[in-house]
């Protein structure tokens, strides 16, 4: 009670997400041709730990407290994780998208949900092609179920985390046609 989003909100998110996917596909060639900074070293597809560090950052990956960044040097993406920029995700083929989703799912199975994780899960869902491959199908259902479990444990309903978990459950269930996992409209 109090967690479940309205049907209207869910339908809006599905429409926005669909528009984001169309824009991504329309401009994919443009972003693939963009130059990436030298410090953006995308891991190999099979490098699970490399992708976890790349997406979530050394700080979160190693759970070690690091000294605050020197403001003057700008953001250290190695420490905080590279955001899912279009110039990055547009370079990932479907096999890599599915592999990274699997790696982040295994992370999410044991670790808290964070904004960095949420942004990457959203970006990977945006890149997943339909019809879904069997392993992608199973992964996104696992993701929605895990979001539901984590949401149940959330004590503070007003948390941003609730909103993000609701969003992912909504997109998996209503955009990717996994209606049995959908939230009943409140």
């Amino acid at each position: 009670e109090g967690y479940s989003p309205t049907l209207k909100w869910q339908q809006q998110q599905v429409a926005h997400f669909s528009a984001v996917r169309q824009s991504l596909n329309k401009n994919r060639n443009h972003w693939q041709s963009q130059h990436l900074d030298s410090n953006v070293a995308m891991p190999k597809s099979e490098d699970e730990e490399g992708w976890k560090k790349f997406c979530l950052g050394e700080r979160l990956y190693s759970e070690i407290e690091m000294l605050p960044d020197n403001e003057n040097l700008g953001v250290d993406y190695i420490k905080v994780g590279f955001p899912p920029l279009l110039s990055i995700v547009s370079r990932m083929n479907q096999a890599t998208v599915t592999s990274v989703l699997e790696y982040l799912m295994s992370w999410f199975g044991e670790k808290p949900f964070t904004p960095e994780l949420g942004r990457w899960l959203y970006a990977l869902l945006a890149c997943l092609e339909k019809p879904l491959l069997p392993e992608a199908h199973s992964l996104i259902r696992q993701l929605a179920r895990r979001c539901s479990e984590v949401r149940l444990l959330e004590e503070n309903k007003n948390e941003e985390r609730i909103s993000a978990l609701n969003l992912i459950i909504c997109l998996v269930s209503r955009y990717f046609d996994q209606y049995d996992l959908a939230d009943e409209p409140s």
Partner: peptide, 27 residues
């Protein structure tokens, strides 16, 4: 013109996610 700005915004996916998350609270 908005379509052009679409092309040039490397952070479009991040903004879309943050906006969607914020919209739930507003709703």
């Amino acid at each position: 013109q908005s379509e052009d700005s679409d092309v040039w915004d490397d952070t479009a996916l991040i903004k879309a996610y943050d906006k969607a998350v914020a919209s739930f609270k507003d709703a």
